[in-house]
Design a protein around this nucleic acid. Sequence first.
DNA 1: TTGTAAGCGTTATCAA
DNA 2: TTGATAACGCTTACAA
Lengths: 345, 345
Amino acid sequence: MTGGPDRPSRPPTMADIAAHLGVSRQLVSLVFRDAPGASEETRRRVREAAAELGFRPHVAARSLRRTHSTDLGVIFAPAHSTELEMVEHIYSAASAEGYDVILSAQTAGRSTDEAADELLGHRCAGLVVIGSHLGHAGMRALSRRAVVPVVDVGSRMRNADYDVVRSSGDRGIDDMVTYLAETGHRQIAYVDPAAMPASAVRRKGYDRATERLGLAADVLSVPGRYRRGDYFEEAGAAAARQLLERAELPTAVVTPNDHTAVGVLQILLRAGVRIPEDVSLTGFDDSPIARLSSVDLTTVRQDPALMGTAAVEAAVRRIRDGAAAPAETVVETWLVKRGSVAPPR
Amino acid sequence: MTGGPDRPSRPPTMADIAAHLGVSRQLVSLVFRDAPGASEETRRRVREAAAELGFRPHVAARSLRRTHSTDLGVIFAPAHSTELEMVEHIYSAASAEGYDVILSAQTAGRSTDEAADELLGHRCAGLVVIGSHLGHAGMRALSRRAVVPVVDVGSRMRNADYDVVRSSGDRGIDDMVTYLAETGHRQIAYVDPAAMPASAVRRKGYDRATERLGLAADVLSVPGRYRRGDYFEEAGAAAARQLLERAELPTAVVTPNDHTAVGVLQILLRAGVRIPEDVSLTGFDDSPIARLSSVDLTTVRQDPALMGTAAVEAAVRRIRDGAAAPAETVVETWLVKRGSVAPPR
DNA sequence: TTGTAAGCGTTATCAA
DNA sequence: TTGATAACGCTTACAA
């Protein structure tokens, strides 16, 4: 006699619910699949009994038996805030399309391929890779062995093997430089953290804008390894130190990343340079740090909601139409004007 | 005649590998389970054939048939960098214990309970919840319906329903205040972001240290909602603005969070206050931002590796011994001395 | 070392 | 709406 509530040794199954209610097992199955063939009253009773007995459908049994997988595999790096915002929206977009999300992290000790292998073991219907550690060749190889559609979210270019979702990074930087020029700036430096995956695309925007506007290009290229968590800030700090060695500072500094801008900001503030009175500064991403009142950074917003949704839609489109060719989705960006930009003195 | 490589309509199964090799299906199973009963030569041939045919065991089939689940469910919030570092170490700790990790995110639109329900649908052997959105009552309710052991990683106190893993936050802050006092400081302010889950624990360390050392307590308590991504920084910024209104600044400011310290830092720098010449500043967590050369923050390190490992070990211990009572694991912290602390002027 | 047989909890397909 | 029956791909006894 130990007393206390029973701890069931085995979680309840659909058969248990059916027995409890005196109905058939497949009726219970119908209800949980939202399939036609049960009255409203029956559905209610089934769900009630399930809640009471603590029943939840066994996803392994379900996914084993189902003809078509309803799982979407998502690989992400638990480091970049933008990626994580996307994960959030991928959950809701997937759910709206009738898909469940299975996450797999890529970390320093866990490669994109390992993460993908785990998801393929789950027989997902499609794979969304955010911020892949793989080069294009690696992504192509992955797409080929995956058998299911693969979507890359990041900054890769359109190709024949996998879908691509990216923001219009070149356009965003171009808009930013144009805005600074309209504000009166002529000496606009650009910090290029060369190891950043989207570096090439965004730099293109700077080159295009300066050429069109007849401004002198002034690029501070910073090498390094982008996998280190602090690479972006350090790149900005390094560029700022370079600037401080000059006889004269530019009137504006454009960066392709909010964290890089913060690196610039902190070094310049320490040196007594005021932002925006002495130098205007801009970022990219509209990450949470840009919104801080102490940073208040003018930046480019690439909507993580839009990108997450676009990734899910790309995957679903190719899952539904196996013959469809991989496509490219470019998500528009827009300027977010804050206090870090002012006319030059 | 379309040519090109075949796209298999159905992923290969163990039976396909067996047929390809002319061996039995269960031999292939043995090999993938690393179970005894196959020669080295056979194992090699099986793995080779599997790689060639692109076979991966179907995890749903496996988990359906297995007597004991080998999956560990992990709930995390894609927001705090410390949590995300833990996820990384949980993967390796789990793998060392023979467990696979299934991630489930809790976001603004997805509650801890929803995340838990998904994992329970997978029939995980245990649940690790990092930075739960639930209060203690919610965690207790979750532990009861989960049937499997639940581990909370964060700052909750020992209790009878679920395991707790936390860092010794009170001790860490106590050590920090002691260190500042040894450096010569007597006016040590403390910023308390009251909505931070670990707030109470860490504040206790400040109160204890100041009392023991005979210093005047000077607490700036900042309310707010901790779910907002920028709450920590804003709390620091708000506290710094309060400080700037005073006739005289304290010689040192202790914060229970690196991001809060950065909020303080940026407001003080803007006001022309030099760190550490005018004011010493400390954080907590040793997050990547503390290591930036432009921040260079003296802080308290709580090892995410240790905490992740401790969480896995707590779960595994209770999975293996169903009668074991939930325990508390307090992970030690230590000071990381950097450039943001100097003797007072 | 290999083969035989059963079954995990669902979904799917029938005919009633 | 129900019942019977077969599968999904794998693991687990147990016998050979």
